[in-house]
Each structure stands twice: as C-alpha cells, then as structure tokens.
Amino acid sequence: MTGFILRRVVQLVIVLAIVSVALFLLLRLLPGDPTTTILGTEATHEQREILRAELGLDQPLIVQFGQWILSVFNGDLGESWITGEPVSAVMSDRLPVTVQLGVMSLLGALLIGVPAGVLAAVRRRSTLDTALTGAGVFFLAIPNFFLGPLLVLLFALSLGWAPPSGFVNFTDDPIANLIHMVLPAVTVGSMVVAVVMRQARGAMLDSLGGDYIRTAKATGLSRGRVVMVYALRNALLPVITVTGLQVGALLSGTIVTETIFTLPGMGSLIVNSIFSRDLPVVQGAVLLIVVAVLLINLVTDLIYAWLDPRIVYDAA
C-alpha cells in the first residue's frame, strides 16, 4: 500500500510540473497590455514603460518562469496586476464560495442520485425506471448555461421564489446565503445527478446479479435487506469513484454558473481575470483548481484501494 501511495504521489508531482509549465507559457501568449488596466486610459507611454519594468515584464521568459515557480513554492502566488492584492488573499476570499457551491451540488447529487439509481435498478424496466432514466438523459443533455437562465426565468422572474442572482455571506445571514445558493447548486448539480444516478443504477444491477446476492437470497434473507445491505454496499464503490471523477466537471460547471448568478467564486474570478488580463490571478486560480482536482482524484483512488481488497497495489 505504501508503494502504491508513493507511486501515485510521484505521478502527481510530475503532472503538476507539466501543468505549471504549460500554464505559464500559455498565459504569456495572452494579447493586450496590463499597464492600461493599471494606469487607466490617460497614462503616457513613459508611465507604461516604468510600470512594465516594475512588473518584471521586460525580463526574459525563462527568468520570469523561474521567479514565478520559486515564489509559488514559497506560497507566494504574486500580486494581482490590477488591484495589487496578493493572489492568495484574493483566492482565499473566493474559494469558500466555490467550495460551498461544489459541496452543495455534490451532496445534492448524491442524496438524489444514489436513491434514484437504486430505485431504478430495483424496479428495473418499470415505468419508474423509464421515467428516472429519461430524467437522467434530460439532465445530462441540458447545458448548464441554458438550465441556469431557464431556472431564473421560472423560479426567479415568474414565481419569485428565489433571487435571480447575487450572494450573501454565510456568516452575515446563513438563511439568505442558502436561498441564494439553491438555484446555482441545482444548475451545477444537474449533470452530476444524472451521472451518479446512471452509475448507481448500473452498479446496482451488476451487484444484484452477483453470486453472493443469489446466495443471500437463497438463505432466505428478505429482499429489502438484500438490497440495502449487500447489493448497495457493493454498488457504492464504483459510485464513489465516478463521483470523485466528476469534480473536474463540477468545477467546469461552476465557471459558467458563477458567471450567470454573479457569485464571487473561483469561476467568476477566472473569467473576470481573463477579461481584465490579470495574469497572476488567472495562473494562481487555475493552478489551485488543478491541484484541488488532482488531490481529490488521489484521495478517491486511495479510498477505492482501501475499500476494495481486490486491487493489487503492485501492478504495473
């Protein structure tokens, strides 16, 4: 097991190195001039040159990269070119919103998706199964940038049940905070629900068809007990893996969703920063997201390995 963990960690470090080089190079190609952003429209050419030197933009690329990586290792992601705030401070401000949005949609997806999938599997080929599978197809196919506006149209503009956008800090007013997060969480979670349900249904069907279930049934255990205790436990394993793999998709969803609902999270931070050419913030935010995804995938792998005794850790 130690060898397995070690190998996965080494892999993760290599991937991170590649990611950071790619990220750095890619964003240096961005068009535009940050000095305009900082100095505004009424600055002279000389003022711009002075600032460019201050920002280190006149250094060779490799030097800029070296400096960036070194400071990243020191936990210093640089300063925003626009606001001068430390990138880490900007992100620590934004991260909780995205984490909350992610957790709410993920929990919602599991709480709805798993029971729905199990139900569909147990009642295989029933009307309920067809309806649930149909709903799954629907939520898998509706892009969140379309679902979001539809939800706003229906629940905010027509029914007035929820605010159309905006954000309230949880610490200021927890209830208002949750009310503001419901529509965004539904928007982000819709696709994950579909994936989880589909996976739960499939895994449950496999599991229900397994030998040990037949044995359990033969020993006279009740159907409900067989489903809940034996089949479900085995079915949950692949569901966990798939859910772990959905974190990337979930974060993609938060980008569009935070933009629609104007939530101050990491997604809207990235989009805003791209549009204002705030490279250090884009770099820092994308890097943080990638690290988070990699870590979550690692943890998912480890949980899976720990839960499933069939995995051979020393396989190539």
């Binding site: 007035g160 049940w161 929820a162 800090n169 208002a176 009310i179 503001h180």
Partner: peptide, 19 residues
C-alpha cells in the same frame, strides 16, 4: 426575517437586501 423563520420564501427574499 430575524424574528420568524416560518415566513414564506418570498418574504425572505425581500428581506435579504443589505447585509
């Protein structure tokens, strides 16, 4: 909104202005 948590959702929404 502070007093009664049993209010309708709509009223709640109206109440979340400001901080």
């Amino acid at each position: 909104s502070l007093a009664a948590s049993t209010l309708t959702l709509a009223l709640f929404v109206a109440s979340c202005g400001g901080s």
